[in-house]
């Protein structure tokens, strides 16, 4: 065999082995979700079995699962929309009309992200308790909006900067008013960027598990909190846990795979391109 082909084959084996090992816990979880509860805890573990959809049906029939999934969706999408609405004007102003302070402002916004959540847990908890925001969807939406706002502003800013200024100028010369310029030129032109920004924000909200565990109990609890309730010893139904988890992570996994490139930009604040 040609040494180059052999090298590629060796790399293929090593590469897939590494990927397989890393992915294995997820694979095992998905596999377990198709077992019966007895098979799920069987020793030796069963690799071959008759798959059943029983767990998915049970999970779907439990009305509360739908309730938690709906909470996750409403909170993630709500916080993302709100953050985008607040961030678009700011990013537009900073990308197209930069002043002397724009750079400092951007850095300051990032620095607010460096605040560890635990440092402000107590005041937020007490404020929430006193205003009746504990265990409400809007309470979590507000926190997630603020949590992601710096990242959203930042990403939109970098995407807006890539929009060719000439096109906006041409629009201006044709007499486009500022509102029209934003709505009819800037937003359509940067739609892919806005979409991946929103996707990242949704991923971060969906998987957030510090504020959701501390600020919600049942009414507004998203999936992160619901899954955590399986940690109680009496809740040890591995197959059902696996089925609930698989549904909980599937949409976000797909979103994450779709936006992996932009993710690097968003998570490193453009420090790695």
């Amino acid at each position: 065999m040609h040494p180059k082909t052999r090298g590629k084959l060796v790399l293929t084996v090593v590469g897939w082995l590494a990927a397989g090992l890393i992915f294995f816990p997820i694979f095992w979880m998905v596999l377990t979700s198709f077992k019966t509860e007895v098979e799920a805890v069987a020793t030796p573990p069963k690799l071959f079995f008759t798959p059943t959809l029983e767990n998915y049906i049970t999970v779907r029939e439990r009305a509360d699962y739908v309730h938690f999934a709906l909470n996750s969706m409403i909170i993630s999408v709500g916080a993302t929309l709100l953050a985008t609405l607040i961030a678009v004007p700011a990013a537009y102003a900073m990308a197209f009309f930069p002043g002397k302070r724009t750079k400092d402002l951007l850095l300051w916004m990032l620095s607010t992200k460096m605040m560890p959540a635990v440092g402000v847990l107590i005041p937020i908890y007490l404020l929430f308790r006193d205003t009746g925001a504990i265990d409400t969807r809007w309470g979590l939406i507000v926190v997630y909006t603020l949590m992601n706002l710096p990242i959203v502003v930042w990403m939109l800013y970098t995407f807006f900067k890539e929009v060719p200024k000439d096109i906006l100028e041409a629009g201006r010369m044709d007499g486009a008013k500022p509102k029209q310029e934003v709505w009819m030129l800037l937003l359509p032109l940067s739609l892919p960027g806005i979409a991946s920004t929103a996707l990242l924000s949704i991923i971060l909200c969906w998987n957030e598990a510090f504020w959701s565990l501390n600020l919600t109990t049942s009414e507004a609890a998203p999936l992160t909190t619901f899954i955590a309730s399986f940690s109680a010893p009496e809740g040890l139904f591995w197959a059902k846990l696996s089925a609930a988890s698989t549904i909980a992570i599937a949409p976000i996994l797909v979103f994450g795979w779709m936006s992996q490139r932009q993710l690097v930009r968003g998570l490193t604040f453009g420090a790695v391109k």
Partner: peptide
């Protein structure tokens, strides 16, 4: 290989 990053911490 990048999948674990998108799994929620509680899961």
């Amino acid at each position: 290989a990048i999948a674990p990053f998108f799994v929620m911490p509680t899961v």
